[in-house]
Amino acid sequence: MTRRYPDEPAGTFPAPPRQVTDREGRSIQLRCADGTDRTALIEMYKQFDPADRAQGIPPARETAIERWLENILDTDRHNVVASHEGDLVGHATLVPDDDDGYELAIFVLSAYQGAGIGTELVETLLGHGQSEGIEQVWLTVERWNDPAIALYRKVGFETSNSERFEQEMAIRLA
């Protein structure tokens, strides 16, 4: 399948590590993550509100979370995490597809949603992607998930396919 990407590249995104202050005044650290963050990520996903799951991820059961993270933290993937006072509160990931593109997803714990952390996470992950030479990124989002769609659009994603339950959006980084 050929995915459509915007013709024009988006601007430059900030690369990790970064420190930002969210709209609640909390100091949030953004940094790259790898296999060594596995245990902390499992703990974060165990706290994830089932109502915030989308399209079957993150999985609900711990064994399924572990299996899923094994894929997400494998080599060639790119991960950025957000932490507050040492605890992980958000995670964004880029996983390569079979076609020179990367699929993006982000997760923010419910207590930390609505404070701008998701936007910072996506932008920081895209900045990391740019420094890794990644050019094409896409994602799918449930068509009725207006806050998520607004976030992705603000960052620079454009809708590439809206005929399905899941709307597909894409961005060109270079």
């Binding site: 079957g56 899923w68 894929n71 997400i72 996983v95 079979d98 997803a105 399905r164 899941e166």
Partner: peptide, 9 residues
């Protein structure tokens, strides 16, 4: 499932 694990009908 997509590469990332999202279910797509």
């Amino acid at each position: 499932r997509s590469t990332l694990g999202k279910i797509q009908l």
